[in-house]
Amino acid sequence: MIITIASGKGGTGKTTVTVNLAASINRDDVTVFDCDVEEPNSHIFIKPENISSEPISVMVPKVDTQRCTLCGACEEICQFSAITLVAKRIMTFPEMCHSCRGCEMVCPEDAVKEDSRVLGSVHQGKNARGIDLTWGELRVGEAMSPPLISQVKDRINPGGIALVDAPPGTSCPAIEALRSSDYALLVAEPTPFGLNDLALTVEALKKLKVPTGIVINRADDAPGIVEEYAKKEGIEILQRFPFSREAASICSRGKLLVNEMPEMKALFQQLFNRLNQLLTESKEAGEVGK
């Protein structure tokens, strides 16, 4: 089961919800995946140990100039100007490449060989309390995060419950994180900016056909605006977290709310139980459907 925590607007508390949700329960089958690879932060709170890291790269072309006859077929198929013929020479621009392998497939001389471009790394570790975290880290200067996000998600064990921390926004990186999730939990900030971006994410999730619920963070900023929207859209509000300076201060120091504030722990446990209930129901409904 994959539960992805997303928001549209940045800074609404996705990471706070993800890491505290994981820490509020003691279950071996719950693992955390941080897919905000541009700015991963879950490790700051979970504090994993014995970290193993793996560089992640994608295929880019390298031309064997001995074999190349300068026919230009690779240039013709490439939509991204990543391989081009200039003054009787083949030039490649690895940073433009989307790894579609079109050039490799089209070359009549078998002159396009496989090279690689490093996108970043995937790290994995467990903290002292046994919470398992896998996270991606995009190389600074690299523009394409979706293939790295996809690599992080490839490491999800389908048997357990995976909590996925998504990047903000509604374009490719966020969509890559949300794709094929069983449930999307949207963390909404009750402000006009928050509501605007929440609505965009809800529209994206309709396209992706992922069931959706909302939690409201800092629930007293503009009370009512998210509730009103959720009611209109028929989306369940699973939990409300009140604004608290104490909570903000705990988070700012990289600490877990569930360890410092018992009342917060209760709210997160309640949220997890409701999520679990929803997922069990949908699983059963799915099995009946089959």
């Binding site: 940045g10 800074g11 905000d36 541009e38 700015e39 995009l138 523009a143 394409m144």
Partner: peptide
């Protein structure tokens, strides 16, 4: 600007 360090930020 947008958040992050990826394509739209660059």
């Amino acid at each position: 600007g947008p958040p992050g360090i990826g394509c739209p930020v660059i």
